[in-house]
């Protein structure tokens, strides 16, 4: 049989050869790899890393953990527990407030609710802007405005979450089937009734799922806001660390670990029941 035209045969009677990529593809890939390598080398050479520190890092880190043991449980009831409760309240209230702000924004973004492209894009800009700035940075803002404490932390959580919740809510609203809505409209229902009786039943599972998922994320986030003055367990961590009470630091870390594992298990379970 003769060699098919697809394969480059060096000579009519020579063995057929085969390469994985065409010349152009190979050049493209090699260029990409070279650029990636250059970026890595450049980062390594210019970044201010003291080699001795890098070599020392494992020992130092191990030493840090060694100092946390044994953990100081006595400290839990007096300081850690109230801080933990405060963190949970910050996360929950923040999520509620975020949803209260995200619902109108999502309605603004959803094209099947708001017809105007200008309004859609204004809504979308709000979502992107709130999401791009980290909760920690929002907390810095709100601490500067309202002073340190739970209020700043709660607002930081709320504002940062608007982007996330609003984005997914808007998607859920846009995915709603038009059938029931058209039926309601044909029956002459006012706009608010269409929202409540037409969209809400369809969006409800997604809405609850998004809320629960965001709450889970917010519990993690709110645990660190205290480091910049946003209240909650992060403040306990901050004070323990500035006092160099490592056994207390260990306790706080363990509590955070436990809470995160519990909320994740809880939310996974709740979400599996909703969907």
């Amino acid at each position: 049989m003769s060699a098919p035209a697809l394969i480059d045969a060096p000579a009519a009677d020579g063995p057929r050869r085969w390469h994985r990529f065409s010349v152009l593809e190979r050049i493209g890939r090699s260029t990409f790899y070279l650029l990636a390598l250059l970026a890595i080398v450049w980062s390594f050479r210019t970044i201010e890393i003291i080699p001795e520190f890098l070599v020392d890092a494992p020992t130092q880190t191990a030493d840090l953990f060694a100092r946390m043991w044994p953990i100081d449980w006595k400290w839990y009831p007096k300081v850690v527990h109230p801080a933990l409760v405060e963190t949970l309240h910050i996360a929950t209230l923040g999520t509620i407030l975020a949803i209260a702000m995200a619902v109108p924004t999502a309605l603004l973004v959803a094209r099947n609710i708001t017809g105007s492209i200008v309004l859609n894009n204004i809504g979308r800009f709000i979502l992107v802007a709130t999401r791009s700035v980290h909760a920690m940075v929002w907390a810095l803002f709100f601490v500067a405005v309202f002073g340190p404490g739970a209020l700043a932390g709660m607002l930081a959580i709320a504002v940062h979450s608007v982007g996330f919740t609003g984005k997914f809510l808007a998607e859920a609203i846009e995915e709603a089937r038009p059938g029931p809505i058209e039926a309601l409209r044909a029956a002459g229902a006012p706009p608010l009734s269409i929202l409540i009786k037409g969209y809400w039943p369809q969006v409800k599972p997604a809405f609850l799922s998004i809320a629960v998922f965001r709450w889970d994320i917010n519990v993690r986030e709110s645990a660190v806001l205290g480091l910049v003055g946003g209240g909650g367990i992060g403040m306990a961590l901050d004070s323990a660390m500035s006092n160099l009470y490592w056994d207390q630091v260990g306790l706080v870390l363990l509590v955070i670990f436990g809470v995160v594992v519990v909320t994740e298990t809880l939310t996974t379970w709740v979400r599996s029941r909703i969907i």
Partner: peptide
Amino acid sequence: VICRTFHPVIVAILFVKAVGFGALAGVL
């Protein structure tokens, strides 16, 4: 799970304590 559970900020604090302020702690 252990790597995932701790917020990057907490991990960063620990590394700052362990290896000092600066880029190395951030990278780690």
